[in-house]
Design a protein around this nucleic acid. Sequence first.
DNA 1: AGGATCAAAACGAACATTCATTCTAAATGG
DNA 2: CCATTTAGAATGAATGTTCGTTTTGATCCT
Lengths: 191, 191
Amino acid sequence: MANIKPFQREKILDTALILFTKNGYFNTSVQDIRRAGEVSIGSIYHYFDSKERIAAQLYYDLLADMEQAMERIMSESSGAQERCRKVVAHLFQQAEENPKTLQFILQGRLSDFLPDEKPICSSRPFELMRQMVEEGVRTGEVREIDRIVGAAAVFGGVLRMIQLHLDGVLPKALQEYEEECWRCAWSAIAA
Amino acid sequence: MANIKPFQREKILDTALILFTKNGYFNTSVQDIRRAGEVSIGSIYHYFDSKERIAAQLYYDLLADMEQAMERIMSESSGAQERCRKVVAHLFQQAEENPKTLQFILQGRLSDFLPDEKPICSSRPFELMRQMVEEGVRTGEVREIDRIVGAAAVFGGVLRMIQLHLDGVLPKALQEYEEECWRCAWSAIAA
DNA sequence: AGGATCAAAACGAACATTCATTCTAAATGG
DNA sequence: CCATTTAGAATGAATGTTCGTTTTGATCCT
């Protein structure tokens, strides 16, 4: 049976994600979500305790997706270079397909409206990225460097390029930068 | 003579910077600034048209400082490697000495409360960083890469490490990562 | 089958609170 | 004494949330 039930719930989340990323959490009122999502205030508060919980749910969902993607990369490939390459490919792909999602995760100041959350860099998917680097150091693929520095070095430039893309300041399509971006990233830590 | 006049003004700006970076712009009320800065509402609105203008002033000041620093590096040194190295050193130093300042500039979502500002990456200091890379490509110090990719690659990891430091998630002191961080950064674009 | 029953879901007006800003008046100092 | 600065109560708009009501749709009973 097609569940019609969580339909409204999904609509609330989808609408909130769009508005939060477009205008920011604090510039989005619950009334805005009601209007744009064509749902009622009552429905919103039926499914969510508060505006903050909407944001929290989005955060959990998106983080879970990211974690799953990282786990998949970990299991489906081996070796630091192959794995890191796939992470970069995944990030570029997400930036095109689900820009809102990535924007919501990457934009800083999450703690402004989710004060109880740990910094996103402490989360599992980012920890997995650090593991990839660490393993590369052990196998000799990667230079002898701190895992945190390594992860920042290999993914920092990539994330920054994606940030630029999301800010709409790149003159060319994001994809056109991928290969070059990857070569720089890997050079940063390659043995 | 000691100007007592802009004393209050400075106090307002200093207090606002602290509160904005600690709690975020939207979680800081004008009353909070009044209380923490021991100034009156009247004074605040005497010196600034609005809360937003306080943030804008902070942004201009801090961006001007950064621009000046970049100009100085441009004039006092030559060659991409030396210049980039000095930029990295400056950023690390600022992160220690004026963490609030850097945090205010680096944290995304500035456009949430300064909607009329261009993205910070379009600003002069960041443009200068791209110039350093571009020049390096011309002289052969840097590989043949897009200037934007290059700038993101060389400074992306550094900025990410500083971000981590400001988020308080680094296990060691920031300085201890500087040398390693720089080696990774330069490797990313070195010819 | 078809009315009765009931819980889940949807609704939106009303409420209390918070906030940025305005305004009037007092203090200051040259 | 006048201009500048400080003060803080007052204001009105906007916001997140509550709550009583209505609608829906499945299940049960006769």
